[in-house]
Design a protein around this nucleic acid. Structure first.
Length: 919
RNA sequence: GCGGAUGUGGUGAAAUGGCAGACACGCAAGGUUUAGGACCUUGUGCCCGCAAGGGUGUGGAGGUUCGACUCCUCUCAUCCGCACCA
């Protein structure tokens, strides 16, 4: 007994200590349940007053579960969302899974599970982990791209694109991995090799579905200017669209009625043009083969065949060494009459411009290399800054920069830009060519010969095809073309033109009618990619055997699925209408009955459906939901700069053109977060350093993990995750727990907040608020740590201080602060009132009061003898310290200032005004 | 090659043109009713010094400024995109 009395604390004390121990696992479970029950993260979309759509890029769940980088990303979004919620916004923070597509499928293949079954497991895991991490998601509105309720509308979107003439088929070379026996997306080809097995990727020529995103190139480009996005992403998109203004010039070929057309951005150098080079795939090559002698024919054929066999890898390993073959033909340079030999070379790409280039070896290094190797003439037409006007014989002399024209007849002496304008006018006038704009952006290849995606909702009828009939010949199509959605757009004519073109190429093709959507993806056992260029669904007659909607003959359903990026291009709209199976997203046009021309037609709802929509829309506040759009804040990885973000913009514009929404840019603000690395290396499965959150949450709790992940580095930058660091954060939270679980009624009543304390509090609030707004969470946390140190040193903490502190901490450590908040409230009210449950996460964000904030330095503009001498800064604690100021003045040896209290004794100090000082 | 970013202690990193290194990790010394861990206090850019103190310091070289991590010019290094784009 004596021993116990001496060495063990009494039971009451032990109990208190137990309570004083920060035990995250216990409180996290408790609050998860309460939050669920209280629905504190569910947003009433229909009646929200200050809508704030806080959106995180939904993940494609390809791996074992959420990894630590995901916790950082979604945690960061959540921190910001909670902050905004506390500022009084109606924050809508949904979550979902981009579970359809090649990533998820590859993972399923790897572990030998059907993607359908895998999706169920993944979904469960992801949602559990997100919940555990304390992300305040509205779980009543999730989106999973692989569920029929969702892909019904993805397919609907495809159909709409088709009907607008924006979806078409053409033959195109696709990436094919001979070892995996599957086609690959471009993004799965790394340096010409398969992402998974590193085999060299081949090209296969297959007929594919494309979207005419290039029709939107100009709009996609010009809109970038006005976006509040990370600059890097804007630049990347600009480059990807790659607008180039130039001119297409046609040259006569000697001894032929054919012409060769080239595209160039530098027509100013055309007086120096000395050869023409064609891509081996160029259409003229066949023409040439028909006309040349047998020995020449063999030579050309050999060359063309050889380049065809070359893989990307071969080309790269050969570097820039030029190869080519002379055709024996000459094209005439209309300006000079020069006979330009026509060559075939693989440095010319069929996919760019016209697939033919005009060689100006003096002013293009590639042309120079080519000309030098094959002994072609080199003419200088520009003299650059270096003043070198000699004959160009070395690659260093090749002048690609600005300069003035020489050897160019009427262009001589002109600056190259002026010369460009002048020669373009001239060429157009003479009819040699026409100005043209080209883009790097290509049409979006949408087909995938895979299983795990939304089946493309199209039907092909061989019978109709023979007659040259397609959907564009139906009554429905004709009715639609009168009231084309794409109306107030300049491209209307060209679009109609395209539909005209499409209707020929589209012979036999009919979209699945809206009533029949979704075209469900069947559960099949043989889901593995076949590798013959056919889709796994191609083995399933029960899937593809249908009758033609036009003639009733036997027809075949499309067995390809669409690209994952189509799924993710519109999901942000779906979140707002997950409770509706009668519309893809909230839209005024979809609910207004009297606008006949509008989109109620577009979704071609039956009359009964229509009335159902308008009846129920009022009660569910569909119109108010629109106030959440466009997305207020979008947060995601910069690696999606040009893919997802560009596609989403395109699709949004298209939906606007359908008349279904009133905006054309989906994301008002986009913030690119940094990636996470582990112990100095990128996390990857091959390195075996992929870290999951589960163990850390178990050991330290979600609060610690969340805070540590954002203390590492600013949200926008990459952070290095180290086990050693996380303990410091855990230590901090324990200290906070201890400090605030001790704040009691009796104490806090007495607690007087000192003026210094007041100042510190308001300064901290101000700093943290500003930093949160800029998503610089690491500095916010640092300020909270400093403020803790300050509070801990005080004799007691007042209620006001405790509340302000907990509120600021709440976005980072939602569980702990909630517990402490309830504890604090109950202590103060002396009893726990369950009925008055008020989560800290719905409390107002603390406000700072300027009067308590004194800046560290007083900056005074100084004028000496009437001349402005910039400013003089005086530390605020030196204001009134005559000695200190005199010392400063002495150091400067020019200025003397007399300040006492907050006013200058001799001269009145007015902030922002120039003050004259006596020397 | 083109485009973009980043360079600050042993580490992650802070600094509206105004005391460089906040905050944390790590390390060191000390304290504790002290197994270990935890916890508490102090110190910690580098160099000289027992100390007081002094010198030096934001990749490098210049420039603007009373004053530069911050703005400008050049340069070096690293990372990330795109790449035979006419």
């Amino acid at each position: 007994e004596k021993f116990e009395a001496k060495y063990l604390p009494d039971k009451g004390l032990m109990k208190k200590n137990m309570k004083n121990n920060f035990n995250p696992n216990e409180i996290e479970l408790k609050w998860q349940a309460i939050w669920d029950k209280e629905k504190i993260y569910q947003t009433d979309l229909g009646s929200a007053k200050r809508p704030f759509y806080n959106l995180m890029m939904f993940p494609y769940p390809s791996a074992e579960g959420l990894h630590i980088g995901g916790v950082r990303t979604f945690g960061g979004v959540d921190i910001y969302g909670r902050f905004k919620r506390m500022q009084g916004h109606d924050v809508f923070e949904p979550f979902g899974l981009d579970g359809f597509g090649i990533h998820a499928e590859n993972y399923a293949l790897k572990i030998g599970v059907n993607p359908v079954d895998n999706a169920k497991v993944t979904e469960k895991n992801f949602y559990r982990q997100i919940k555990e991490a304390g992300i305040g998601v509205d779980w009543s509105r999730t989106v999973e791209t692989y569920k029929p309720e969702y892909y019904k509308w993805t397919q609907w979107l495809f159909v709409e694109l088709f009907k607008a003439g924006l979806a078409y088929r053409k033959k195109s070379p696709v990436n094919f991995c001979p070892s995996c026996k599957t086609v690959l997306a471009d993004e799965q080809v790394i340096d010409g090799k398969c992402e998974r097995c590193s085999s060299i990727v081949e090209k296969k020529n297959l007929e594919q579905w494309f979207f005419r995103i290039t029709d939107y190139a100009e709009r996609l480009l010009t809109n970038i200017e006005g976006l509040d996005w990370t600059a890097k992403v804007k630049i990347a998109q600009r480059n990807w669209i790659g607008k180039k203004e130039g001119i297409e010039i046609s040259y006569e070929i000697e001894g032929s009625d054919k012409k060769v057309t080239v595209f160039t951005t530098r027509p100013d150098t055309n007086f120096g043009a000395t050869f023409i080079a064609l891509a081996p795939e160029h259409s003229l090559v066949q023409e040439i083969l028909n006309r040349v002698q047998d020995d020449k024919k063999a030579e050309i054929k050999n060359y063309v065949e050889a380049t065809k066999k070359k893989t990307e890898i071969d080309r790269q390993s050969e570097g820039r060494e030029k190869t080519g073959v002379f055709t024996g033909f000459y094209a005439i340079n209309s300006l000079t009459g020069y006979k330009m030999p026509v060559w075939i070379s693989d440095f010319v790409l069929i996919g760019f411009g016209t697939g033919a280039v005009v060689g100006v070896p003096g002013h293009d290094t590639r042309d120079f290399e080519f000309a030098q190797k094959f002994g072609l003439n080199i003419i200088r037409v520009v003299v650059g800054k270096d003043g070198d006007s000699s004959t160009i014989t070395k690659i260093e002399q090749v002048q690609e920069e600005a300069g003035s024209m020489v050897n160019s007849d009427f262009l001589n002496g002109l600056d190259i830009h002026k010369a460009t304008d002048k020669i373009m006018d001239y060429i157009e006038e003479k009819g040699y060519g026409r100005r043209k704009v080209t883009y790097h952006l290509r049409d979006w290849l949408i087909s995938r010969q895979r299983y795990w995606g939304p089946p493309i909702p199209m039907v092909y009828c061989g019978n109709c095809a023979k007659k040259g009939i397609s959907w564009f010949d139906t009554d429905e199509a004709k009715k639609q073309s009168k009231g084309m959605g794409i109306s107030n757009d300049k491209s209307q004519i060209s679009n109609k033109q395209k539909i005209g073109n499409s209707s020929e190429a589209m012979s036999g093709w009919f979209p699945v009618s809206d009533k029949e959507l979704p075209v469900k993806l069947p559960y099949i056992e043989d889901f593995k990619p076949i590798g013959t260029g056919a889709s796994p669904l191609g083995n399933h007659p029960e899937f593809y055997e249908v009758t033609c909607p036009e003639c009733g003959a036997a027809a075949k359903r499309e067995t390809d699925v669409s690209d994952t990026f189509l799924d993710s291009s519109w999901y942000f709209l779906r979140y707002l209408a997950t409770d509706r199976d009668d519309m893809p997203f909230p839209s005024k046009a979809l609910i207004s009955e009297n606008s006949e021309n509008s989109a109620s037609q577009k979704i071609r709802a039956s009359d009964s459906q229509k009335s159902r929509i308008s009846e129920s829309s009022e009660s569910s506040g569909i119109v108010n939901r629109l106030r959440f759009l466009p997305v207020t804040m979008y947060i995601g990885g910069a690696e999606h700069s040009v893919l997802h973000l560009l596609y989403a913009r395109f699709i949004t514009m298209f939906i606007k053109d359908l008349g279904l929404i009133s905006f054309e840019e989906p994301f008002s603000k986009f913030f690119a977060h940094g990636l996470i690395i582990k112990d100095g290396a990128k996390m990857s499965k091959s390195k075996g350093n992929v870290v999951g959150p589960d163990l850390y949450i178990k050991k330290f709790g979600a609060d610690t993990l969340r805070m540590y992940l954002h203390f590492l580095a600013p949200f926008s930058q990459e952070g290095d995750f180290r086990d050693s660091g996380i303990e410091g954060m855990n230590r901090f939270l324990k200290k906070v727990w201890k400090l605030f679980s001790d704040v009691q009624e009796s104490k806090s009543e007495k607690a007087q907040i000192s003026s210094e304390g007041l100042k510190m509090m308001h300064e901290t609030i101000k700093n943290v608020t500003v930093e949160m707004e800029n998503l610089r969470f690491n500095t916010s946390i640092a300020h909270l740590m400093s403020y803790y140190n300050f509070l801990a040193k005080q004799e007691s903490v007042s209620r006001g201080e405790a509340e302000a502190y907990l509120k600021m901490l709440a976005p980072f450590a939602p569980y702990m602060t909630e517990e402490l908040w309830q504890e604090l409230q109950s202590q103060i009210e002396q009893k726990r009132k369950r009925a008055n449950f008020a989560s800290i996460h719905t409390q107002p964000w603390p406000e700072f009061d300027e009067q308590f904030i004194v800046s560290d330095t007083v900056t005074i503009p100084v004028q000496v003898n009437g001349k402005l001498r910039s400013t003089l800064s005086i530390a605020s604690d030196q204001v009134g310290d005559k000695e200190a100021i005199e010392k400063m003045a002495k150091n400067d040896e020019k200025v003397a200032v007399f300040i006492k209290g907050k006013s200058i004794k001799k001269f009145i100090y007015i902030p922002g005004k120039v003050v004259n000082f006596v020397i």
